[in-house]
Amino acid sequence: MRKMKKTHITETLDDRIFACVASFLMFLLLIICVYPLYFVVIASFSRPEMVSTGRVILFPRGFTTIGYDKIFQDSMIFRGFLNSAFYTVAGTLINLIVTLPAAYALSRKDLVGRNPIMIFFIVTMYFNGGMIPTYLLIQNLGLYNNPIVLLVCTALVVYNMIIARTFFENTIPYEMLEAAKIDGCSNTRFFCTIVLPLSKTMIAVIALYYGVQHWNSYMNALLYIDDQEWKPLQLILRELLISTNAMSSMLQGSESAEEQQNLTSIMQYGIIVVSTLPMMIVFPFVQKYFVKGVMIGAVKG
């Protein structure tokens, strides 16, 4: 009796210690993840001298929006923003048009040659021609420096197609197809009027995966786009944030060197905020879909 009581007490103590440690670690993680982003936001609203002397820690000091004023006046950043928006929306649409029908066809067990076709796709997940042969292919196709290349060169991500296929397999019962067929429904009509409306969640997941990828990618643009006019935002950001020369040439004017330095830094904070804002606004609302996507993918794994 006494013994049981004792174990009971030690167990709760264990649990309490564990809960304390776990909460502490989670709190630490919260700060580590959020603070850098929070800092960039407050720094973008503070006077650069305050930031560079380390007086901006928790709140903006010397509130100013001069960085944002400069950013919104700049036509290059604006153009990049529009380009990226276009690539993201149009690119994602193309992705969906390519991915969803193919995924549905592959989810059908009565598709003759299903396994060979699947292998045809899966091979590309492990083997590819590499950067240079792809680069030359794009040149030979006449797509170099053509904005279309950013829409089509990643038209299909096989992993996303597998997620969609797994979802269709698990949620669209075969009996439903049979019933529809008896009523004289064609495959196309079944897909458009029954399958797609039943798969809204999954379509959201896939669209978001593709959308994030389009918005954040700079690699393909670095390789295939040379024209300033068609560069996506990430590439312009790279020029402004990472190679500082572009920034100072942008600010050429009457300002002194020190003022230029200050302007550069506040604008860099502002640019980070402006470019990341769309993702950060959308993200909390859609994160549960992302989590679902990982889970569907994991089931397959």
Binding site: V98, P101, A102, Y104, L111, F121, N128, G130, L156
Partner: peptide
């Protein structure tokens, strides 16, 4: 269903298999 597969297959053949011989 085979028509459904055409875009994905064409893309994969051109952009993913195409460079392999390179």
């Amino acid at each position: 269903l085979y028509i459904f597969l055409i875009p994905a297959v064409v893309y994969t053949a051109i952009f993913l298999y195409g460079p392999m011989y390179g």
